[in-house]
Amino acid sequence: MTDLARLLRAAALAGGVTRAARTALRRTKPGGAAVWDRTNHAGRDVDLCAGPAVTLGVAAGALAADPGTRGAALIATVAAGACGAYDDVAGAGDPRRGPRAHLGALREGELTSGAVKLFGISAAGLVAGALLKERWADRALAGVVVAGTAHFLNLVDVRPGRAAQAALVLGSAGLVRGSLAAAPMGAAVAVLPDDLAERGMLGDAGAHALGAALGVAIVAGNGRAGLLAHGAGLVAAAACGARVSAWAAKDLTAARQGPGPRA
């Protein structure tokens, strides 16, 4: 199979499975509406069906990707999507945002869903790195890139369509080096219209799954210098995003508490 044929097959398979899974989840909503329905930033009713659907779609598309990277892509995607889904459900209503807040809670003896997600995706990134690289330094850098890209996609998922659009931008460069990026791009295209129309949202499950899969594509296509450059950029983005998340958490807490006493 040629590289172009593998690329098209991965994208088509990911998109088709994503659409089918989203439709099935919307029809059944296992566990009830309370598990799936949310209110977005604009006060509109949306559902989280796209998140698990994207995870399934990207995993299916990974099966059609380069044979030597399928295992890493599957592990990173499924683990990131599962950890994100857990946070979507168990962390609903938790105003704490960003790694610093969740690590702070852990130091006080509380294991938050955000901490579970942080450690779970980081571990999956390291496993994926171990499958893709031979030297320990490269494996560690690969873990940073996979987990960091997953975190980055979730950071930008603050408005309709942002995460899916970011996935398409990041994935377009990865297509030059192989077909790994085709699966997350195909899944992103499948959910983008619904996301922009504010009928559904990716949630942590979808954003993290897309990011982890793209992280694997970046790792597979780069040597140590490239991994260092990507890792540095992701760390910088995470630092900036942590500040934004902290401000958002304060605003959310203040809004829930209502206006304070007037002077």
Score class of each variant (00 low, 15 high):
residue 196 L to N: 08
residue 140 A to D: 06
residue 232 A to T: 10
residue 229 A to D: 01
residue 181 A to V: 02
residue 153 L to Q: 12
residue 239 A to Q: 05
residue 170 L to N: 07
residue 221 G to S: 03
residue 151 H to F: 05
residue 168 L to D: 10
residue 234 L to T: 02
residue 196 L to H: 07
residue 224 R to A: 10
residue 217 A to G: 02
residue 233 G to K: 02
residue 245 S to A: 12
residue 214 L to C: 03
residue 176 V to F: 13
residue 232 A to C: 06
residue 166 A to W: 11
residue 186 G to S: 14
residue 199 R to F: 07
residue 166 A to S: 14
residue 162 R to E: 10
residue 146 V to F: 03
residue 151 H to W: 14
residue 229 A to K: 04
residue 157 D to P: 15
residue 202 L to R: 12
residue 198 E to W: 01
residue 179 S to G: 05
residue 150 A to K: 03
residue 187 A to G: 08
residue 162 R to N: 04
residue 199 R to M: 06
residue 209 A to T: 01
residue 193 P to T: 09
residue 236 A to L: 15
residue 146 V to Y: 03
residue 196 L to P: 09
residue 177 R to L: 07
residue 209 A to Y: 11
residue 221 G to H: 01
residue 226 G to E: 02
residue 217 A to L: 02
residue 215 G to I: 00
residue 207 A to T: 11
residue 200 G to Q: 13
residue 202 L to I: 12
residue 194 D to A: 10
residue 148 G to N: 04
residue 201 M to G: 15
residue 181 A to D: 04
residue 214 L to Q: 05
residue 197 A to K: 14
residue 139 R to W: 07
residue 223 G to R: 11
residue 218 I to H: 03
residue 188 A to W: 04
residue 200 G to E: 15
residue 189 V to Y: 06
residue 226 G to I: 04
residue 230 H to N: 15
residue 217 A to M: 03
residue 159 R to W: 13
residue 228 L to N: 07
residue 207 A to E: 14
residue 240 C to L: 13
residue 199 R to D: 08
residue 234 L to G: 01
residue 194 D to C: 08
residue 219 V to T: 01
residue 200 G to F: 10
residue 173 A to Y: 08
residue 152 F to L: 14
residue 172 S to Q: 06
residue 199 R to W: 08
residue 155 L to F: 09
residue 180 L to D: 10
residue 215 G to D: 10
residue 151 H to Y: 13
residue 235 V to W: 15
residue 220 A to E: 02
residue 199 R to G: 15
residue 204 D to C: 13
residue 157 D to I: 10
residue 144 V to E: 02
residue 165 Q to P: 00
residue 182 A to R: 05
residue 215 G to V: 00
residue 170 L to D: 06
residue 220 A to C: 07
residue 193 P to M: 06
residue 150 A to W: 00
residue 214 L to G: 05
residue 211 G to L: 02
residue 205 A to E: 05
residue 192 L to E: 14
residue 217 A to Q: 08
residue 212 A to F: 03
residue 236 A to F: 11
residue 195 D to S: 08
residue 166 A to M: 15
residue 202 L to E: 11
residue 192 L to S: 14
residue 208 H to I: 00
residue 184 P to H: 03
residue 181 A to P: 09
residue 214 L to F: 01
residue 245 S to F: 11
residue 139 R to N: 09
residue 195 D to H: 08
residue 172 S to M: 11
residue 200 G to P: 01
residue 154 N to P: 02
residue 226 G to K: 01
residue 148 G to S: 04
residue 147 A to W: 09
residue 198 E to D: 00
residue 193 P to H: 05
residue 186 G to Y: 14
residue 206 G to Q: 06
residue 229 A to G: 01
residue 188 A to L: 02
residue 225 A to D: 09
residue 240 C to E: 12
